[in-house]
Amino acid sequence: MKMKNALSNAYAKLGVMATLGMSSVAFAETGASSTNYLDGLIEKVNVEPIITGIVAVSGTIMGVAVVVMGIKKVARMLNVF
């Protein structure tokens, strides 16, 4: 249990440090004249791969659902005879 807690704490600390580092870099690049400090972070985030992944996964799930429904329909039709 100690090892799990140590790994969990290390993971949390690493996440906090990474977030702090990204924020510091974004704030340094935006300059002191910017009033919205999140603009620098928002400009760095690329959401296109995330959207592509979500669309691909949802399309795959829908395709599998249609195939399963078709198999069930054919099975019901064969059981009628």
Rank of each mutant, 00 (worst) to 15 (best):
M1E: 10
M3G: 12
N5Q: 10
A6M: 11
A6P: 00
A6G: 04
A6L: 14
L7Y: 11
L7F: 13
L7K: 12
L7W: 11
N9A: 10
N9G: 07
N9Y: 12
Y11V: 06
Y11F: 12
A12W: 03
A12T: 03
L14H: 10
L14N: 10
V16Q: 14
V16T: 15
M17A: 15
M17S: 14
M17T: 14
A18I: 12
A18L: 15
A18N: 12
T19R: 04
L20Q: 08
L20R: 09
L20I: 08
L20T: 15
G21R: 08
M22E: 02
M22K: 07
A26N: 05
F27C: 10
A28M: 13
A28G: 12
E29S: 09
A32Q: 13
A32I: 15
S34N: 04
S34L: 06
Y37E: 06
D39K: 13
D39E: 09
G40E: 00
I42S: 08
E43S: 14
E43N: 12
K44E: 03
V45H: 01
N46E: 06
N46R: 05
V47I: 14
V47A: 13
E48H: 05
E48W: 08
E48V: 15
I51V: 13
G53D: 04
G53V: 08
I54F: 01
V55I: 10
A56R: 06
S58L: 08
S58W: 00
T60N: 02
T60G: 05
I61Y: 01
G63K: 02
A65V: 07
V67H: 00
V67W: 03
V68M: 05
V68N: 02
M69R: 15
M69F: 10
M69Y: 08
M69G: 09
I71V: 09
I71H: 04
I71M: 09
K72R: 13
K72H: 09
V74N: 04
A75M: 09
